[in-house]
Design a protein around this nucleic acid. Sequence first.
DNA 1: ACCTGAACACCGTTCAAGT
DNA 2: ACCTGAACACCGTTCAAGT
Lengths: 190, 190
Amino acid sequence: MPKVSDSYREARRDEIARAALRCIERSGFSDATIADIVRESGLSAGAIYSNFTNKAELARYIVAHFLGVRREELEAAGRRGEIRSPRELLLFMLAAYQDADVHGAVPLQFWAAAAVDPQLRAQLDETIDGIRSSLAVAIAPWAAAQPEPPEVARVVRGIMGLAQGYITFVTVTQGVDLDEYLAGVGLVVG
Amino acid sequence: MPKVSDSYREARRDEIARAALRCIERSGFSDATIADIVRESGLSAGAIYSNFTNKAELARYIVAHFLGVRREELEAAGRRGEIRSPRELLLFMLAAYQDADVHGAVPLQFWAAAAVDPQLRAQLDETIDGIRSSLAVAIAPWAAAQPEPPEVARVVRGIMGLAQGYITFVTVTQGVDLDEYLAGVGLVVG
DNA sequence: ACCTGAACACCGTTCAAGT
DNA sequence: ACCTGAACACCGTTCAAGT
């Protein structure tokens, strides 16, 4: 297959996925109908189905392409040996979603959908593994600099857990910023 | 209205809600169809619609009746002045969901649904406020016994945040128990 | 090769008819 | 008063016909 047509195809898929993302932000995953995505993208139902086999595959594409993080960016400082604390990395991840226009409730929609769709769950696992391995690179200098270096996997799990916890908490209970959230959490685990 | 018929009606609503809960656990909120609930309950579509105005009201009923906690139970020790640590209360809440047959992904389904349904969100806010005020009673003796007593609202926020975080984390990333989760979180906020 | 849009099967909801 | 189940409007998906 010629390169040009491959990249054309990929651009179309991206265009549809971004339209879907806007619909999902507004209506949630299940209530974002194909008709909505047709309207939002300006294409037709057939166009969507000639780029994705069905809504479930579109969901997996979004998880693969929009719910990951840009690995180079996250790993760069770590590779240079620069120290980034767990808290800074948590902030970095949350900011990365903001920049990528993956707002508020969107990740939560996919987590809920993945809980009942094994294929989507498998894709989400893969995406999360990618984030985890980048976080491991990013946190290594900090971990090594601790008086009693903690297990990297455990710190990574903590960052992921708090990212998911904060995103859920903020969606359910609006108006609590990250510092307040972490202060509350600190009183429980401290 | 006679008492008998009221309690009969309530029993019917409860019966339908429990059937719905089993469907939601299996298929998620949106994919749990009315036809599923009809099958699971052994009733008819009309029976469901003569007890709830629509699926959204059924969802609100479930949030009100199954996503709260039994307040007396949670508050009892606190009223007696017995000290329960934040961690013990977190465990207690998670165990209460288990006992009430509100398994794993179910709360996550409703949080995701509430993010895009204002009426469901309002009901969820009310239910969560109930939990929060019970937690405040339950944590008071512990807070008072601290060398530097923390703000009760902040501890309560921490417990709620970790409960939501853990439920989300466990649904997305299976096989991590609460201690491992809290240990990871501790490395980030500690 | 990709797209259009009408057509099909299914889901939420209603409502006439039953008890 | 509550229930039944067929009927209606809409959503995911397909497919013949277009470019």
